[in-house]
């Protein structure tokens, strides 16, 4: 599905986002940052889950390793963010490649279970690694930046740029030669291989991109919360959101996760403030199960069905008109 001009829309979104930081208060950047974080995670998850058909339960592991890459770099040399972000992408991309290389030859469910296991092993490693603060955690001290209203405003703008970049990459993959190969793998891996698709290589590309993108989503997290410890970095809600957002939006195109993330992310930020954060989690869970069971194609699928239905109705009406005339 081509939504008219992508790049002008992306540029406009970015400009509006930057302008907004001068008019709105701190709360909105914080909420906005979290929505964007969810959006990147959902987009990343969908490259493997939606395009390729492999479920990753260990999203929190990739996210947290992105965050911990930042912590390590900060503790060692405190480099600027434009070094930190690519470093997190490289670390988590390699992690994705490794996990994929080890388990993608097996059935899909084993990959899903292995990712879950990997997240827990990584969490244990971080808990036991004194250099990054172990179970207690590590502090990050941020400095003011020029031009921006606050550090959070700065992070929000960075996150906005990263989110737009991630969506653009997912969109490119969706419509590229690689994307068509991934779709064939998702539909039938054996048939895809026999049609000349190098399935293992494409799956590895897919996991690597997914891992790198999740690492990027986590790279700024330590600067955002200024304090990182394993339990919150590896939080299950990160993994659940990464699955729920694409499932709710629709997994077959790049648009679905974007819609799902914006919608579910906003609902979450709203309920967290206005109701309670536990209930907020319950809503996510119920929406996930509900959509998976009742509307497997997500909101995008529902919209397509509705469009097809109205077209049919219109044609029927036209047919009736010509019959009477």
């Amino acid at each position: 599905m081509r939504i008219a001009p992508f790049w002008p829309l992306a540029a406009a979104t970015f400009v509006i986002g930057v302008a907004a930081t001068f008019y709105f208060n701190e709360y909105y950047f914080v909420a906005g940052y979290l929505v964007l974080q969810g959006l990147i995670m959902a987009t990343a998850w969908n490259i493997l889950g939606g395009f390729t058909g492999y479920v990753n339960f260990g999203s929190a592991g990739f996210f947290a390793m992105g965050a911990y890459t930042s912590v390590v770099l900060y503790t060692a040399i405190n480099p600027p963010l434009f070094v930190v972000i690519p470093a997190a992408a490289v670390v988590c991309g390699l992690l994705g490649l490794g996990a994929g290389y080890l388990t993608l030859r097996l059935r899909g469910v084993y990959f899903a279970i292995a990712t879950l296991a990997m997240a827990i092993v990584l969490e244990t490693l971080m808990v036991n690694w004194e250099y990054v603060g172990g179970a207690i955690g590590a502090f990050i001290i941020t400095e003011d930046v020029p031009f921006f209203a606050s550090y959070n405003a700065y992070l929000f703008v960075l996150m906005l740029a990263l989110a737009i970049g991630s969506v653009a990459l997912a969109r490119y993959l969706n419509f590229s030669r690689i994307g068509r190969g991934l779709a064939a793998i998702r539909d039938d891996e054996v048939a895809a291989e026999c049609a000349g698709v190098p399935t293992l290589r494409l799956k590895l590309i897919s996991t690597t991109v997914m891992g790198a993108m999740m690492g990027v989503a986590g790279a700024l997290y330590p600067y955002f919360v200024t304090f990182v410890e394993p339990v919150s970095a590896f939080s299950l809600i990160v993994a659940v959101n990464a699955i729920a957002m694409p499932m709710i939006g629709g997994t077959s195109t790049w648009v679905g996760p974007v819609i799902g993330a914006l919608l579910l992310g906003s609902v979450q930020e709203w309920t967290k403030v206005n109701i309670s954060s536990e209930l907020n989690l319950l809503i996510v869970g119920v929406l996930l199960v509900g959509f998976v069971a009742l509307a497997p194609q997500g909101i995008v699928g529902l919209a397509q069905k509705f469009a097809a239905w109205t077209r049919e109705q219109r044609e029927k009406r036209r047919g009736d008109d010509s019959a009477t005339a």
């Binding site: 030669r177 068509r180 190969g181 064939a184 998702r186 539909d187 048939a191 049609a195 000349g196 077959s252």
Partner: peptide, 16 residues
């Protein structure tokens, strides 16, 4: 490839 049309099915080997 059941998510694709018949034509798209053929385009996979034609491309790959």
């Amino acid at each position: 490839f059941s998510s694709m049309t018949v034509l798209e099915n053929l385009c996979i080997p034609l491309e790959y």
